[in-house]
Amino acid sequence: MSGTRIDKRFGELRKQGRAGLVTFLVAGDPDFDTCLECLRTLPENGADIIELGMPFSDPMADGPAIQAGSTRALQNGASMPRTLELLRRFRAEDATTPVVLMGYYNPIYIYGVERFLDDAAEAGVDGLILVDLPPEESDEILPQAQKRGIDFIRLVTPTTDSARLPAILDGASGFLYYVSIAGITGTKAPNTDKVRKSIEALRQHSRLPVAVGFGIRNAEQAGALGLLADGIVVGSALVERIADPETRDGIPGLVAELANALRSQSRKAAS
């Protein structure tokens, strides 16, 4: 499936010799229109891939910032149909930036797995990250997603050992999401040495691109980890700025700063 938006994007990044910037926002946070406006600014400021969180009342793997974002979105009318509508509206204006839907399984299960995959594919989704659906339970959605050309992006964590890795890699496509800390989103800072070792080990087993996320908040961290990975995910640092109009105005600047940190490495690599 070399034709997917995700594969194409990582192909371009490889040519540029740099890691891509993956930005995360919660769909409908703080409300539908503001979120859509914010989404539009991401690619033009240097985001290479967009992760869109599907709001859930009980986001157990997320820290306070993303939890608050989910709550704001739900209070302002977010739902699965609205999330898909948001994606559709974004996709109508941007045909190339890959969009990955990230979240928890229950809202999909209740929407109906087949119906969700049909509607998400139609809306223009490229991949799925389902936090609470480990390989042990993913057989109820993974084959159906693959059939529609939707990448199933697996999480690899600091607790993943080599015995468990094959099960995680089985069926994984698009890229691998390396969770850089044992913990929840937006809390601890990742340890670069540990991440380096883990990614090196991971590359022994898989040729998929590796994006690193959880706990990356600034350009300095992004730059350091950008030397190791194929993608850098930033979420909480954006989500905690989106509610207040004043801090929200700073999002494009922060995204540009993060993108520059990664792009400057490309120049170094080329020179």
């Binding site: 936090v131 609470d132 042990e136 339970e137 607790t159």
Partner: peptide, 20 residues
């Protein structure tokens, strides 16, 4: 052996917790 009671039960947890 997968922890299922019919369609119920299972192990719907974050990957970090699976080894635990």
């Amino acid at each position: 052996e997968r922890g299922h009671f019919g369609i119920f039960g299972g192990r719907f947890v974050a990957e970090t917790l699976m080894p635990l």
